[in-house]
Amino acid sequence: AQASVVANQLIPINTRLTLVMMRSEVVTPVGIPAEDIPALVSMQVNRAVPLGTTLMPDMVKGYA
């Protein structure tokens, strides 16, 4: 199954992502693919992302 990017902590709005904030997990619905984690580093989220939330393309500025 495809692993997705999941928030490893609460990520406040406009925060630049770092590796420690993200983990890969097989979840439904599928979000951003886990292999994109390196590309997500330093991108900003456009909303607060609670712990355990799957990151979707529309949550990350410049990803989609």
Score class of each variant (00 low, 15 high):
M22I: 08
K61P: 14
M59G: 03
T53A: 13
A39I: 14
V49S: 02
S4T: 04
G31A: 03
V60A: 01
V41N: 05
D58P: 07
L55V: 11
A34Q: 14
A7F: 02
V41G: 02
T28I: 15
I32D: 01
V27Y: 02
L55P: 00
A7T: 09
Q9G: 06
Y63M: 06
L19E: 10
G31D: 00
P57N: 04
T28V: 11
M43I: 04
I32A: 02
L40T: 01
D36S: 15
V5T: 08
N14D: 13
G31W: 03
D58V: 08
N14S: 09
I37M: 14
P38A: 10
N8H: 07
N8S: 09
D36K: 14
L17F: 02
L51S: 12
A48V: 12
M56K: 08
Y63R: 03
S24M: 07
L17Y: 02
R47Q: 10
L51M: 12
V6G: 00
Q2D: 13
M59L: 05
T53F: 10
A48R: 09
S42A: 10
A64P: 10
N14L: 10
S4E: 00
I32S: 00
D36N: 14
L19V: 12
A7R: 00
Q9D: 12
G52E: 06
I32E: 01
L19W: 10
V6T: 05
V49H: 02
M59F: 12
A7D: 01
P29Y: 03
T53W: 12
Y63H: 08
V60S: 01
M22R: 00
A48G: 10
Q9L: 10
S42M: 09
L51F: 13
M21D: 06
V20M: 11
T18F: 03
V41A: 05
S24H: 10
A1I: 15
M22K: 00
T15C: 05
A64F: 06
L40N: 00
G31S: 02
M59R: 03
T18C: 04
P38W: 07
V6S: 02
A34R: 06
A1K: 10
N46R: 10
V5M: 02
Q2I: 12
D58L: 10
D58E: 13
V30R: 14
T53L: 08
L55R: 00
Q9M: 13
S42G: 11
V26Q: 07
V45K: 00
A48N: 13
I37T: 10
R47I: 10
T15Y: 08
A39D: 07
P57H: 14
V45F: 01
P57I: 06
P50D: 10
P50W: 05
V49K: 00
M59A: 09
E25G: 11
A64E: 15
R16E: 09
K61C: 04
V30K: 11
V60G: 01
I37F: 03
Q9P: 01
V41I: 11
D36R: 15
G31K: 00
A39N: 15
A34Y: 07
A1T: 13
M43W: 07
M22H: 00
E25N: 15
V30I: 14
M22L: 12
E35V: 14
N8M: 08
E25L: 11
A39Q: 12
G52I: 02
P38N: 07
A39Y: 11
A3V: 09
L10A: 10
R23N: 08
D36H: 12
I32W: 03
V41C: 04
P33T: 09
V26M: 09
V5Y: 01
L10V: 11
T18S: 12
A34E: 10
P38R: 11
R23Q: 05
E25S: 08
G52Y: 05
N46D: 11
A3G: 13
P29W: 03
A7E: 01
L17Q: 00
R47K: 07
A1W: 11
L10N: 13
V20Y: 08
A1F: 10
R47H: 13
G62S: 09
L51V: 10
Q2S: 13
A48C: 04
T28G: 06
K61Y: 13
N8R: 07
V5A: 08
R23M: 06
E25Q: 13
V27I: 08
A7V: 06
V45S: 05
V41R: 07
Q9C: 04
E35C: 05
N46M: 13
I13C: 07
G31V: 02
A7C: 04
Q44L: 09
T53D: 09
S4K: 00
E35Q: 12
A3S: 09
P33C: 03
R23D: 06
T28S: 11
S42F: 12
P29G: 03
A3Y: 11
V45I: 07
P57E: 09
V6E: 02
P50R: 12
V60C: 03
L19N: 07
P29Q: 05
M21R: 03
V5F: 02
V27D: 01
E35R: 15
R47M: 08
A7Q: 01
R23A: 09
R47A: 13
A3Q: 11
Q9S: 14
A39T: 15
R23C: 05
M56P: 01
L40M: 05
A48I: 09
P12F: 07
V49Y: 01
R47C: 05
A39V: 11
R47L: 12
G31C: 03
T28N: 13
Q2T: 14
M56A: 07
Q44D: 05
V41L: 11
Q44C: 04
V6M: 05
N46P: 03
G62E: 14
V5N: 01
V26T: 08
Q9I: 09
K61E: 15
A7M: 04
Q2N: 07
T15W: 07
P38F: 11
E25W: 06
V41S: 04
L19R: 10
R47G: 06
P12E: 15
T54K: 04
V6H: 02
L55I: 10
I11S: 00
D58W: 12
K61G: 11
S4H: 01
Q44G: 09
V41P: 02
P38T: 13
M22Q: 00
A34G: 14
Y63T: 04
P12W: 05
N14V: 03
Q2Y: 14
A39C: 04
Q44W: 10
N14I: 03
L55F: 10
M43C: 03
D58G: 10
R16G: 14
R16C: 04
L40A: 01
L19Q: 06
N8K: 06
Q44A: 06
P57T: 06
P33Q: 06
P50G: 09
M43V: 05
V45Q: 00
N46T: 15
P57R: 10
Q44I: 15
V26P: 08
V60E: 01
M43Y: 12
Y63S: 04
V30M: 09
S24C: 04
G52K: 04
G52W: 05
S24D: 08
